[in-house]
């Protein structure tokens, strides 16, 4: 299990390694979607995964979380295999991955975040309900708790998904494009929550599309295009060179620092 090979990245100066991915390779058919990914994510960072469409960003998250079965590779969370550390990890899927016409309420969806700690058969009780209401409050959706989920706007649905992950009270959060199709006020609300999570010592990994906001929102970044191009602190590696390598075109981003 332990891989003693020397890593090219310098881990964060203070913390432990929250997520470690070794030799991860994923393929749907013949062509690999991810090829031999080695990745170390230090504890307490707010990390963006960036790359062009089809670069395998969502696939990377899904393989780490065991939703997809990789061809090779292993994932460890705080030094132990992912399967034993599930309770430390929360997932926010893409909003479009579910049917929002499902007959249920906002509060009910958030309560689903408590199912993991409850385990099989046991039903959520008052304690779980209270935690879910608190999570709804954190995302500013408390007044919508009884709303049928199809009657929520896209941004509100995204907040519900975020609340569902918050209620898991995890240490590591994986989010698949949480800013997709949300309005400006929701984007600000979400990024504030992400920053609060980081402040609380949590590790947050976000698949992100908008390169312009990377330096503003994140402190850590991974460039991905089937292979891992680079990973590290935004201020060190978020530059034209890596962007060009990742996106294949001469990319110019002006970084105001």
């Amino acid at each position: 299990m332990n891989n003693h090979s020397v890593d090219k990245e310098t881990p964060a100066s203070t913390g432990k390694i929250a997520v470690k991915v070794d030799d991860l390779t994923v393929a749907y058919n013949y062509k690999p979607v991810l090829w031999d990914i080695d990745l170390e994510i230090p504890e307490g960072v707010l990390m963006a995964i960036v790359g062009p469409n089809g670069a395998g960003k969502s696939t990377l998250i899904k393989s780490i979380l065991g939703i997809l079965k990789p061809i090779a590779g292993s994932v460890s969370i705080y030094g132990k295999p992912y399967e034993k550390q599930r309770q430390l990890v929360a997932y926010v899927p893409q909003k479009g991955s579910v049917d929002w016409d499902f007959p249920t309420t906002a509060l009910d969806v958030v309560m689903m975040g408590t199912y993991g700690s409850l385990g099989w058969i046991k039903r959520p009780g008052q304690k779980e309900k209270k935690a879910s209401l608190e999570a709804l409050e954190k995302v500013g959706m408390l007044s919508f708790k009884s709303r049928q989920i199809s009657q929520l706007s896209g941004g509100q649905q995204q907040r519900i998904f975020l609340a569902r992950a918050l209620v898991q009270n995890a240490s590591i959060y994986f989010m698949d494009e949480p800013f997709q199709g949300v309005d400006a006020s929701t984007e600000i609300a979400i990024i504030n929550i992400l920053k609060a999570l980081r402040k609380a010592g949590k590790t947050v990994i976000v698949v992100h599309h908008d390169l312009q906001t990377v330096p503003e929102y994140f402190d850590w970044v991974t460039f991905l295009n089937v292979k891992k191009i680079a990973t590290g602190p935004v201020k060190d590696i978020f530059n034209d060179d890596n962007l060009t390598k990742t996106y294949g075109i001469n990319y110019k981003v002006s970084i105001q620092e």
């Binding site: 939703i67 899927p93 249920t104 993991g116 099989w120 039903r123 959520p124």
Partner: peptide
């Protein structure tokens, strides 16, 4: 009735259900 909670979450969001360890 026994597996109500499991049925419900699976119907709504299968991938997420997996990440919860079910």
């Amino acid at each position: 009735l026994t597996f109500w909670k499991e049925f419900k979450i699976l119907l709504f969001d299968k991938d997420y259900t997996k990440t919860l360890g079910f």
